[in-house]
Design a protein around this nucleic acid. Structure first.
Lengths: 187, 187
DNA sequence: ACCTGAACACCGTTCAAGT
DNA sequence: ACCTGAACACCGTTCAAGT
């Protein structure tokens, strides 16, 4: 009875992640339990612990994998405003593809920073291109990131009407332009 | 033994809310359990259900009570930019006083809209004063609200450096000014 | 009216035992 | 090496019984 209901087929990490994914996309992070996950795989709950440290490690790993799908667009020579909008859209599309997991990431910043490494470089590049002075580059980048990720979570939870993302981005770009102009005249 | 460990003193809703509050402020929403709450009140867990429908109703009510503490500043005749900043600060201070509960609210928009009724009127008033055309008043208000509440949650979870709130607000104000200017010239 | 204990259907996780 | 069952310490909630 050792092979049990799974007839000797060895359980793999990939299978586990895929099943966890399914559960989360269907019912949110709160629908994921180790026991349901095991049932989904027709396996004893305890077998999971041979492939995964624990539930939070599993969630963490899942978030990292989503993050890896993020491909920030390269510099195509277009104006910074367009590139910023394009970057925002990449971010947003991935979030909308996995809203439940994204909400989890937003509420667990230690995961967020590990997950979204690639975005920061792209954001910095675009802000420098826009003429943001280096001394507030980091602050501006953090502010924009907080605004945009907060907006996207709001979209996912229904706190904001659909199809307002471009307008929201336009507002930020307008603010950035004013900020840069002000920095230039005072220098 | 009916009076049990609480010696006949009748349990009140107020006591329950206060204790729940304490647990949440100490350890986050995830630290609140009906059983720990009962222990805190030296009462049988089941006694709580005589005063509260269930756990989510309790949380909901708690959120509404925090929201009621929000007093949007009245129109003092100062420029809209200052009034918008003042409004943001009121919102932010309350959120920082109860960060755990706020995170919960942000992730449960049905609670959010019930809780933050007073803010919307103030926001609408300020945006009209600023000259935002009525046809995008609602959209702009939603966008600003999503940005600001997202930023505040980011502050609470450590995703953004402290003392950047005024800078963040300035960015939004700059964007709004540009938006209004654009609307005026196109009209 | 208010409180209680026992019970049910869940959790995550540990540990000793099985193949 | 991989899997398992029994067990522990938790959850929220229902329900019949107590005062």
């Amino acid at each position: 009875m050792a092979a049990g209901p799974r007839r000797g087929v060895p359980l793999t990490r990939e299978e586990i992640y895929a099943a966890a994914w399914r559960l989360i996309d269907a019912g949110g992070v709160e629908a994921l339990s180790m026991r349901k996950l095991a049932a989904e795989l027709t396996v004893n709950p305890m077998s999971l612990y041979h492939h995964v440290e624990n539930k939070t490690a599993l969630l963490h790993e899942l978030c990292l994998r989503v993050g890896e799908q993020m491909a920030p667009p390269p510099d195509d020579g277009s104006p910074w405003q367009e590139q910023l909008l394009a970057l925002g859209r990449v971010y947003r599309e991935l979030a909308h593809a996995h809203p439940a997991l994204w909400r989890y990431v937003f509420n667990h910043p230690e995961v967020m920073s590990a997950q979204q490494g690639g975005l920061w470089e792209a954001l910095d590049r675009i802000l420098l291109l826009a003429g943001v002075p280096e001394h507030d580059l980091r602050t501006i980048a953090e502010i924009l990131s907080a605004f945009v990720s907060g907006f996207i979570v709001s979209e996912a939870t229904g706190g904001v009407r659909p199809d307002t993302f471009d307008q929201a981005t336009a507002l930020l770009i307008g603010g950035l332009e004013a900020h840069i102009r002000a920095g230039r005249t005072s220098a």
